[in-house]
Amino acid sequence: MGAVMFWSLALISVAAAGVAITRRNPLASALALAVCLIAVAGLFAMLSAHLLFILQILVYAGAVVVLIVFVIMLLNLGDADLRTMGVQWGRFAIAGAVCLLGCVATLRATRGIPGLWRPEPPGFGTAGAVGEALFGRHLISFELIGLILLVGILGAVVLAKKGE
């Protein structure tokens, strides 16, 4: 049961990633990206990371993909603009070959990873358990993330302002 779930989610995410990097139309890519992100959210749920499952769907598949789709609509690229931006198969083959080498090398290097899971303590991965670590040991990092978000908002406002 669990193995079937893992393999189907893995297949969906890899297929969606493959679609996302080979479409000429960025809107099709964005929708495939959303499918891939939701499949990874399912894998988070399998790893009993309940909070991450919700965050992945809300922030990634929700906010980030909607932002990308919004920008695609805003730019409104026509067929004439997209004609030169399809997949260049020569370049794609070179990048694919290099990355396949890296992929195989990394897979070989991680082959010895043990696979025995220990039973999880009650409450592992819930908002309570993650929040305890977040507001305890990682409080300063959390505050810094808040600062980065503020800088990001300011940066986006400055960039979006009409230039003089």
Partner: peptide, 26 residues
């Protein structure tokens, strides 16, 4: 407990990472 080993999850993440890398490079 997840039905497949840690290695499966790591291998999947490696494959997805390099697919993203192909997109960035090409």
């Amino acid at each position: 407990m997840p039905a497949v080993s840690l290695g499966h999850f790591v291998a999947l993440s490696i494959v997805l990472f390099f697919m993203g890398a192909v997109g960035v490079l090409s």
